[in-house]
Structures are given as structure tokens and as C-alpha cells.
Write a protein that binds this DNA or RNA. Structure first.
Lengths: 148, 148
DNA sequence: GTGATAGGTTGGATTATTGGACCGACATCT
DNA sequence: AGATGTCGGTCCAATAATCCAACCTATCAC
């Protein structure tokens, strides 16, 4: 697993990346959140090699992002379901998708969502308290993690 | 550079990760968004080795997330500044920080922000149209990228 | 018994990363 | 003048991670 700690700034972004920052981890999680919960499907849909995928799923389970649940006996078969921590990554994945649609992917986004309100989903990050958009210049650093 | 395309699902998350998904890329971007724009400072504050950092900064510049700007002649010195695409990643980084604070980092978050409204910043993802929180079950898949 | 499905593991070859040394062109002490 | 420090990197050898294909075990359907 990637540690990314022990050097550099004490920072929850670095800590988060220690859990989900390895290659294929987020794509595996994407599939799980899309409802594909079986190893073979996740392997096919991400393109990850099976050994690396097995390792990634293992660390995601260890770190509490996914749970490995047996859905049948004989032969034992398992599926991967998101925990609360895993589900909490959904907005971030959608944000990453929006960013990719806008700045990386050519043409219209390959995956599109509609919100309950009827509009096509274009998620936006707002302050949880006053609900104003989090724009540069509207936030002030109160405390900064130290470089170790 | 990581491609992550050519196999797996056609997806802007995968495309985004092709640009910012390599190790150290997001941490370098974190430093730039915090205002540390010089190579040595970014190296110190991330803990990345210098050659890898140089490679990452190069691809971030190539892909339009950062710009490399000369800030003095003789000797030539350069700094890295975020482009619009880079600044657009700020909300995502804050979301990742929030997630890390909540599910990974022990104790209080090492870095904290205050919003203009006076509250400590806890960003939240909402629908850009109706401004309701983007929760599981409030979105519907309209189109899904195909697996190639 | 043949094939398919599921969830992996194993091995060998290829790539990436690490940490440290080094470099050129200055600037700043002493 | 000489020594040391800064800045933005590059180069190198050792180590670690990744990739791909093949294989394995167990079971079911035909």
C-alpha cells in the first residue's frame, strides 16, 4: 500500500490518497458504486489486471472503504459492497467526473446523471453551513498541517 | 504517463485520473493551490523525490493543469501556477480533505479552513441546478460509458 | 466429460519509484 | 577572493510495483 506519510505535509489529502490513491482503486470503487460488485465484472470494466485488482480490493476492505460479503456458499462467492466511508466518496467521484468531462474528455461526457429535480447533474461544491459555492477567495486558512 | 484508456469503461473519472491520478500529482497540486509554487518548496512539502516531481510537474503542465512561468532571468527561475483547470480542482481537493479528515486521519484535521460566512468549512456537494445535496438515491443514470 | 462461471494465485518480464549525488548559474556572506 | 547557499533541475543504481498470461479449485449446466 502507498503510505505517503512519514514525509511531507501532515494532511488529510495525503492520508486519503494513502487509502484510495493507488492506481485502479478509484476505478474499482467506481464500479462498486455503479452496482458492479463481482470481481470478474470489476476486472472487465476497469481493465485492471486481476492480481493487482485483488490486492487493491483487499486494501480497500482493510481500510474500511469496501466490505467483502459472501453471497453464496458452495462454491463460496463474494461481492464487494461500499461501506459508509465508500458511499461518502460518491460526491467526490461525481466531482472528478465533472472535472474530467470539462477539462479532459473530448466531446460530451460518456456518463451522465440526472438529479431528482429533473436537471442533468452538474455537481457543485458549497459550504455546508451557508451553502454558498466554495470559490477561491471565499475561504481562509485557519490552520495548516506542518511539514514533517 | 498513466493512460488508463484503451481498456475498461469509457469514463471521465478514468480520463481525469490519467491526468492527475499518478502518485504525487495531487500533492504537488495541493502545494501549488496553497501558494507554494517553487520546485524546492513543493519537493520539501510533498516528500516526493525530485526527479519524479519534475516528471509530474511536466505532465501537469503538458495537460494544462499548471503553467510554468519564469519569474526571473539570470539565473532563469520558474514557478508553477494553476491554470483554470487547476483551480477547478480546488473543490475536489477540499472534498478529499473532508473525506480524509472524517474517515482516515485520527483526531482533528491537520488543515482547517474557514468560509466567508464565518463557519469552519465543511464542503458539501450539491446539484448545480436545484442546490439540493447529491445523495445516493437522488440521482438517476441517464447514460453509462461503454466498456471497450 | 466438456464448458462456463467465479474468485482468485503464481511466475517472469517489464516499468516505475526511491534516495542520494551531482550540476550550472548565480547571490550572499566572511 | 573564497566559501557557502539557493534554485531548478538531471543522473544513477537499487528496489518495488505492475503487467500479462497461465493456472487453480470448486461448482453447475448440458
Amino acid at each position: 500500500m502507498v503510505t505517503m506519510a512519514g514525509a511531507g505535509r501532515d494532511c488529510s489529502i495525503a492520508n486519503a490518497l494513502g487509502v484510495i490513491g493507488e492506481r485502479w482503486s478509484l476505478l474499482a470503487l467506481r464500479e462498486v458504486l455503479l452496482g458492479e460488485r463481482r470481481f470478474d465484472q470489476i476486472a472487465r470494466n476497469t481493465g485492471a489486471s486481476r492480481d493487482i485488482l485483488a490486492a487493491r480490493l483487499r486494501t480497500l476492505v482493510e481500510r474500511g472503504v469496501l466490505a467483502r460479503v459472501q453471497y453464496q456458499e458452495r462454491p463460496p462467492r463474494y461481492e464487494y459492497v461500499p461501506t459508509e466511508a465508500g458511499r461518502a466518496l460518491r460526491p467526490i467521484m461525481l466531482g472528478l467526473m465533472e472535472w474530467g468531462d470539462r477539462y479532459v474528455t473530448d466531446g460530451p461526457g460518456p456518463t451522465r446523471w440526472e438529479h431528482d429535480c429533473g436537471a442533468e447533474l452538474h455537481p457543485e461544491m458549497v459550504c455546508g453551513h451557508c451553502h454558498a459555492p466554495v470559490l477561491a477567495g471565499t475561504t481562509r486558512l485557519v490552520r495548516l498541517g506542518q511539514v514533517r
